[in-house]
Nucleic acid binder design. Structure first.
Lengths: 337, 337
DNA sequence: CTGAAAGCGCTTACAG
DNA sequence: CTGAAAGCGCTTACAG
């Protein structure tokens, strides 16, 4: 059975398609009796407007693209979840674009979003390709960059103050009496990793602790890399009593490595993570971490985007900087020499 | 700057829009010289076809809808991830529809998918509303039901043999010497929970162990409910030595409750979960679980759907039943009285 | 080898 | 109070 169109409804209700359109959209007065006939026909035929036609005509799709680097990272999964939720409330669908940290895939997805005429996009960069963003901007598609800063003037941006958060995490460890504080970083081309790491170094310096490169290991923000980085740390000659892991997924991996090495957390070694994903509170010991305000971030990103979409004026290059906060749980403890 | 259309390209290349369309789609022979002119114009203007117009005309959107009950459940996040991945490879975009286990939201999302003329949908039910599916089927939209069975004749279905998996999990515990085996279930209106529970009961029976209702607690498949269920279990007069938790998220919550109660896993109590989400191997102790073949499930679902989309014939009501397998890790151990 | 034209299903000035 | 018609940007018979 072919789809029912506005024409079918018009025929059934004995009116023009103009009138059907107006009652469907409630966009001009229609005589109550006529309106009722149309409503009945609509109901009986089970009419469902064709968004493609509507969008083609009106230029509005009520669809936004969400580009994330890695949907298996729980942090991004949470963000995606929130964006979807807020979008739904506002009547927007979201096309999920997982770039897999792959510039080629990201680029192809941007083409798709362009072709599908999305009204806007929320963009979490997979790295260093501002070209993709430029293509969006050139096509007048508003984009809000979230989480990972990008060298582009023409987008709004909502970020965390990662440097300060890195500082605060380190400070927590220092306050607890730690002096040998290791750090497991993410890929160093990613701004969040870099900045957290900068905060770590600044904090050491301000507290008169020498920076020791032997205490630094790099991971890729995923579980296994955290485990491996921790193993390297434990088998080296360094004697860390605490480690600041730059995201929670790696922190959980690191905890696992510590356990396997027979260490007790936090008695033998303290671990602090970053993100505050839901599972942190459920594992043992519960993970101390720097919380990212995911909901707030998603909310700001969507609000900024929607302001553009409904044409409300605001500065083109608005920057919103959110702050992280320390969530003390059970994986960090006082260190007595 | 307004979007560039096929008309702009035609004008620039001095040909008809017909010809431009044909070179864009490579759909009929075009004189090499002419073709080159078009290609150049395409490039210079940065032409990007408008999918809306194309889809409206051709009736094909190369977009599928993915309806999941709860995107914050890691299992569904993984499934979504895989579907997106396979879809991308085949040239399909996916619209993420998180029903939040809310029938109203699910229903509104189905409307959206209908309006957006998706080519097909992969559907993981939030419960018991076959009406939504009927609307899809009535509009000739192929749907593949995954994970949670649904009383509908007109869809393909890819499921896990949950009953057998429940049996196998329980058998593992019995083989280890356990006789007092508790079970933390999911909502009992969900087929997977029900069926796993049936398998549990069958296994007890076949092994001459009396079913004890005091050993059963219900959760909602999320972390906190697993923790709470475990607390109830521990504070009751029952004396479980092992617990079969019907998904991993709850199992992790249950482990946390056991730890907080001062129990050591698996020495004092064994725990087996269900799903095999990525984090299972990273926590301590690593969680023994029944693995769901997520990749296989996503692959079958997409293949079935795509077969429909490209018009390949196959039975309308095809049922694919996958089997789970036991992943022994460190949260279960032999019980000596 | 190429183009003029119909038509996909809508919205929306314009007219009465 | 309502309708005829143009047009959104494409694809695709049809014709030459």
């Amino acid at each position: 059975m072919p789809r029912v169109t506005i024409k079918d409804v018009a025929r059934a209700a004995q009116v023009s398609i103009t009138t059907v359109s107006h009652v469907v959209n409630n966009t001009r007065f229609v005589d109550p009796a006529t309106k009722q006939r149309v409503l009945t026909a609509l109901e009986e035929l089970g009419y469902q407007p064709n968004s493609l036609a509507r969008s083609l005509r009106s230029g509005v799709t009520r669809t936004i693209g969400l580009v994330v680097p890695d949907a298996s990272n729980l942090f991004f999964a949470d963000v995606a979840r929130k964006i979807e939720d807020i979008g739904f409330q506002q009547g927007y669908s979201v096309i999920l674009c997982n770039s897999d940290n792959n510039p080629g895939k990201q680029s192809r997805y941007i083409n798709t979003l362009l072709a599908k005429q999305v009204d806007g996009v929320i963009f979490i960069s997979s790295g260093s390709e501002p070209d993709d963003l430029m293509r969006l901007v050139e096509n007048n598609i508003p984009v809000v960059v979230a989480d990972r800063d990008v060298p582009l003037e023409l987008a709004d941006v909502v970020l965390l103050d990662n440097e300060q958060a890195g500082y605060d995490a380190t400070k927590h460890l220092i306050n607890l009496g730690h002096r040998f504080i290791a750090c497991i970083t993410g890929p160093n081309h990613l701004a969040p990793s870099m900045q957290r790491f900068e905060g770590y170094k600044r904090c050491l310096k301000e507290n008169g602790i020498d920076f020791d490169p032997k205490l630094i290991e790099m991971g890729d923000f995923r579980f296994p890399s955290g485990e491996e980085a921790m193993q390297r740390l434990l088998s080296s000659s360094s004697r860390a009593t605490a480690v600041f892991v730059l995201n929670d997924m790696m922190a959980i991996g690191a905890m696992s490595a510590a356990h396997k090495a027979g260490l007790s957390i936090p008695k033998d070694i303290s671990i602090i993570g970053f993100d505050d994903i839901e599972i942190d509170a459920a594992i043992t010991p519960a993970l101390t971490t720097m919380a990212q305000p995911i909901e707030e971030m998603a909310q700001y990103a969507m609000n900024l985007l929607i302001e553009h979409l409904v044409g409300k004026k605001h500065e083109l290059n608005q920057r919103i900087i959110l702050t992280s906060r320390l969530i003390k749980r059970d994986s960090t403890a006082r260190w007595e020499e």
